[in-house]
Amino acid sequence: MLANGSLTVGGREGEIRRRIVEADLVDGIIALPARLFYSTAIPVCLWLLARDKASGRDRRGKVLMIDARDMGAMLDRTHLALRPEELAEIAGIYHAWRGAPVSEGMSQKPYADVPGRCCAVDLPTLAEHEFILAPTRHVRPAEAANAAPDFAEQFAALRRDLLDQIDRAAALDREIADALARVEVP
């Protein structure tokens, strides 16, 4: 409890979340996009729980965070669906995290954090973040994909394009004037 008598961040829900995390029951959290379910338009998170995090790949003391909010394709104006390849990507990340065997013919890559998609977070880090389990708080953005182009370079390219178009417009105006001068009026 805080000095004013209230519970920590999240109230009773925050206390329950803290106890579940400290008991090391949370294996993974997947942030899904909005409009995925017919009953709600808000984004949701799947909680993956495991009592035995030592089987397969030892995951004790860590939680996998997957940010899949950018996935999916609109089915209609209000509903979204995950594509089969996106589902396979999410499942592949989780299988690699667990060290679980995969279907025959599929190669298993070892788990690795992927900026913009997933990361493993240890329990002390979760405690620092007041046990908030939002993948958006822990998954680093993909820097290369989200990097904004340099303004000076972008402006110089746009300026060159504009000057080229002005020159081309002037040349076309001269051609039109020459063509009109050759027209004989009866």
Score class of each variant (00 low, 15 high):
G99P: 02
Q154D: 01
R182N: 09
A142E: 00
F131R: 08
P115Y: 02
Q108P: 10
D67P: 02
A50S: 12
P135G: 02
V26C: 05
A156N: 12
H95R: 01
R168S: 14
V121R: 12
V102G: 12
D173A: 14
A3V: 14
A23H: 06
A96T: 12
D164I: 15
I66R: 10
E128F: 00
E128G: 00
R51D: 11
P115R: 01
G5A: 13
L64W: 06
L82A: 07
A54R: 13
W97E: 04
Y94D: 02
K53Y: 06
P141C: 01
C118G: 04
D178K: 04
V185C: 06
A73Y: 08
H95C: 12
R12T: 15
G105H: 04
E175F: 03
D150Q: 11
A96Y: 11
P149H: 13
A170R: 15
A156R: 15
D161A: 12
E128L: 00
I132V: 04
L46V: 11
I93P: 01
D150P: 03
G56H: 08
R168H: 10
F155I: 11
P141G: 04
A127N: 03
R19Q: 05
E143V: 11
V63C: 07
R35Y: 15
D58I: 13
P124G: 02
D52P: 02
D167R: 11
D58A: 11
A157H: 09
C45T: 14
E85H: 09
Q154M: 05
C119Q: 02
A156C: 03
R59Y: 04
Y94V: 14
A157K: 13
L46Q: 10
E143M: 06
L172M: 06
G56I: 06
V44R: 08
S55W: 06
A3K: 03
T78W: 11
I90N: 04
P33D: 07
A156E: 03
V121D: 09
S55E: 00
Q154T: 15
S107I: 15
R18E: 00
